[in-house]
């Protein structure tokens, strides 16, 4: 490459800029691999939010005349073992999956951020305590924690979100700690200390804006993981208690009857698969964009 940077006046940049930006846009146009999954995610989110006003059947209503019915006029996606409408249960189940999928990583992120930023900025004994605590936390099997949680607090939605959120703390804390350390030694932090800025001010104004993007990238990875874990938990009966519908729970209920009526398990499986895949595809593109932005800024 060319040796060193070019001295460019902001004014001189302007003439070539419009053309360059246009070229850049053309090259980086987002393809169907981004748009189709995004449309699906928006669709699922809308369904979940608007569920009560969609005129669906009650997901807990039992239709004794149509147990394990295949898709038909009354039930577009058929009914489950107890004769409940699968479409309604899928839509209401999305509320559980999406709530857990977003809330759990967020809880982990906020707690991990606070812990990690302290460890990365103060180092020393703070760092050692945090490091040991995280190692200990990681050594406890996650399933056991979730089991204890659901036994002690019962299988409600907040319990699942918090329990699962705790499992996201170590990774979030480690990412925060590493990025914080990277920036804490930069001279602009030293300059802030030299002007007498308090630690809180330095953390909020100097460090935080620089570590927020890696954390957003992390959230994008964590959401689909959380959706899958929630599914697995429902399958094991550790998530929200019946009769509240959830995708994992629906898959579990249908597994005894896979041979006669496979649609009971397969429909929620397919919905979950497509949703998780969509989150991954959209997340990948956004993360690549963020990395590009970061490279250009530094």
């Amino acid at each position: 490459m060319v040796d060193g940077t070019y001295d460019e006046t902001p004014e001189a940049e302007a003439d070539g800029q419009a053309e360059a930006i246009a070229a850049h846009r053309r090259r980086n146009r987002l393809g169907p691999i981004f748009w189709i999954p995004l449309v699906w995610i928006v669709f699922v989110v809308l369904l979940a939010v608007l569920a009560p006003s969609l005129g669906l059947q009650d997901p807990a209503d039992i239709d004794f005349l149509a147990l394990q019915a295949p898709p038909n006029e009354d039930h577009v996606l058929g009914t489950d073992v107890l004769g409940r409408d699968i479409l309604a249960r899928i839509v209401y189940g999305a509320r559980v999956s999406l709530t857990v999928g977003v809330a759990a990583p967020l809880i982990g992120l906020v707690l991990g951020l606070m812990i990690g930023i302290m460890a990365g900025y103060y180092r020393g004994w703070t760092d050692e305590i945090v490091g040991t605590a995280i190692d200990t936390w990681l050594a406890v099997p996650g399933l056991v924690i979730l089991l204890l949680f659901s036994v002690i607090f019962g299988g409600s939605l907040p319990t699942v979100c918090i329990g699962l959120g705790l499992l996201f703390i170590p990774a979030a804390a480690r990412i925060t700690r590493a990025t914080t350390m990277n920036f804490a030694n930069r001279e602009f932090v030293l300059a802030a200390r030299a002007m007498g800025a308090s630690d809180l001010r330095i953390l909020a104004l100097e460090i935080f804006p620089n570590i927020v993007w890696p954390l957003v990238a992390y959230i994008l990875i964590a959401i689909p993981i959380a959706v899958v874990i929630e599914g697995a938990l429902s399958f094991l009966g550790l998530s929200v208690a019946s009769p509240t519908p959830s995708w994992g729970g629906m898959i579990a209920e249908g597994r005894e009857h896979l041979e006669e009526t496979p649609h009971i398990s397969l429909i929620p499986t397919a919905v979950m698969f497509v949703t998780v895949l969509s989150f991954n595809l959209v997340g990948d593109t956004v993360r690549r964009r963020l990395a590009d932005l970061r490279d250009r800024a530094i």
Partner: peptide, 18 residues
């Protein structure tokens, strides 16, 4: 601290990129 200030070697690293 207002009375004594400092400038550094690396002009890029001494400014917060954000």
């Amino acid at each position: 601290r207002a009375k004594f200030q400092m400038i550094f070697q690396d002009p890029i690293a001494s400014l917060n990129p954000r």
